[in-house]
Simulated scan of single mutants.
Amino acid sequence: MRSLQQHADAAHYIADDMAEDVLERLAFLRHEPASALLVGDMTGAVAAALRRQGVAVTLADPAPMADEIALDEEQPYPVGGFDLIASLGTLDTVNDLPGALVHVRKALAPGGLAIVSIVGAGSAKALREIMLAADGERPAPRIHPMVDVRAGAQLMQRCGFADPVADSRALDVAFRSLSRMVGDLREQGLSACLERGGGAMSKAALARAEAAFTAAADAQGRVVETFEILTLSGWAKALRAPKF
């Protein structure tokens, strides 16, 4: 994905949407962090905006660039005490999501805020149907499991966050070709990441996929794909004991 993002016309509308949402939430909540850890800030928009506000920003990523720290999101973070941790589009592919969220919680300073944005359940419905048509009677695993709103809220509460919130929004994108649809997914790191995926498609399967795309197209020759952006947020506050 990193190399693909270097292309001038690379797709990054999902990263743009997540970055804009994080900044809007911070403004709405009036949370003014002194220090922030940003994971997966692919476009650099969140880091730039926070630095203009005087925030000390640390960049991290599972596949870091030169100015970022390496971060295994399923292991304890090598740094901590942040007033804000924002993870953009990376936590949906970890094997142990509850454990990863616990590490986020522990890396926050008291009163700190975590915002986690991922592509959630309900995404890529059109592509799922196209792939089912292509695979025929033996559908292959091509998309990793995704989290929905209800499960996301339960996870945040389970992992020790105070005042947890989970919500989702739909991002609709129109495509005129199957190759462009698949290309956009690859450029944004949304292609298959399963250890045992479906493997390469045969020429016959690809022809069936192209036919399914054409059949699903509207009068303008477009297939509209939906990406459900799931956002989880919570605070590092002492949880109140239940009253009996």
Results as ranks from 00 to 15, higher is better:
Ala10Ser: 14
Ala11Ile: 01
Met18Ala: 11
Leu23Gln: 05
Phe28Lys: 09
His31Asn: 08
Leu37Val: 09
Val39Phe: 06
Thr43Asp: 10
Ala45Thr: 12
Ala45Met: 07
Leu50Tyr: 08
Gln53Thr: 04
Ala56Asp: 15
Pro64Met: 08
Ala66Ser: 11
Asp72Ser: 05
Pro76Lys: 01
Tyr77Gly: 00
Ile85His: 08
Leu88Cys: 07
Thr93Gly: 03
Asn95Met: 06
Pro98Gln: 04
Gly99Tyr: 01
Pro110Leu: 15
Gly111Phe: 12
Gly112Asn: 11
Gly112Phe: 10
Ile115Lys: 03
Ser117Val: 11
Gly120Tyr: 02
Ser123Gln: 06
Ser123Thr: 05
Ala124Cys: 13
Arg128Thr: 14
Glu129Tyr: 00
Leu132Phe: 12
Pro141Asn: 12
Pro141Val: 12
Arg142Ser: 09
Met146Asp: 07
Met146Trp: 04
Val147Gly: 01
Val147Arg: 03
Val147Asn: 03
Ala151Leu: 11
Leu155Ile: 02
Arg158Leu: 14
Gly160Ser: 10
Ala162Thr: 10
Val165Gln: 08
Ala166Phe: 05
Ala170Thr: 04
Leu171Phe: 13
Asp172Cys: 11
Phe175Pro: 02
Met181Glu: 13
Gly183Tyr: 12
Leu185Phe: 13
Gln188Phe: 07
Leu190Phe: 09
Ser191Cys: 04
Gly198Glu: 12
Gly198Lys: 06
Ala209Leu: 05
Ala209Thr: 01
Glu210Met: 07
Ala211Gln: 12
Thr214Asn: 11
Ala217Ser: 15
Ala219Ser: 13
Gln220Trp: 04
Gln220Lys: 15
Val224Leu: 15
Phe227Met: 07
Ile229Trp: 01
Ser233Asn: 05
Ala238Lys: 14
